[in-house]
């Protein structure tokens, strides 16, 4: 079902303190990774409204990555704990509506983990390539 010309389109929400800076670190270290994702900078992963994720998927995003600070490192104390709970619930919901929950991924990436940011991108792009395009792109899962 995947053809060679198809490249997944991914949106990544990155918190400015840890993961956005981690992506910057990947840049300053010149660590290469696949160019499929576009990063949206938010103050905290806790800012990521489930509506953003659903909207992205509805608009045929093939994957949504949320990246925030490790537990205990959140610049805003506990924002990332709330994110993890929201994502867990949302994955259940995605299953119900026929979208593979693997299309939504949550990772904790610190400002020093440029390598991890790049590895995460590689792994996520590979995973989405195996899943194929967003089922909604061809008129929905039914």
């Amino acid at each position: 079902m995947t053809n060679k010309s198809w490249e997944p389109k991914i949106v990544c929400f990155a918190c400015r303190w840890c993961s956005y800076a981690g992506a910057d670190m990947a840049g300053t270290s010149r660590i290469q990774y696949p160019p499929n994702a576009r990063v949206i900078r938010v103050n905290c992963s806790g800012r990521v409204d489930p509506n953003f994720i659903l909207r992205a998927l509805k608009l045929n995003a093939d994957g949504v990555l949320i990246a925030g600070c490790h537990f205990g490192d959140c610049h805003y104390v506990s924002g990332n704990y709330q994110t993890s709970r929201r994502v867990a619930l949302l994955k259940e919901y995605l299953k119900e509506i026929g979208i593979e929950p693997e299309r939504l991924r949550l990772e904790w990436i610190s400002a020093a983990e440029g390598q991890k940011f790049a590895e995460t991108m590689k792994a996520f792009v590979n995973e989405i390539k195996l899943l194929g395009p967003n089922p909604l792109a061809n008129g929905g899962p039914e």
Binding site: N43, G46, R47, V48, D49, H75, Q82, T83, R86
Partner: peptide
């Protein structure tokens, strides 16, 4: 308020 936006997502 520090502007994290957790309230907005909730």
């Amino acid at each position: 308020c520090k502007g994290c936006g957790t309230c907005a997502a909730a």
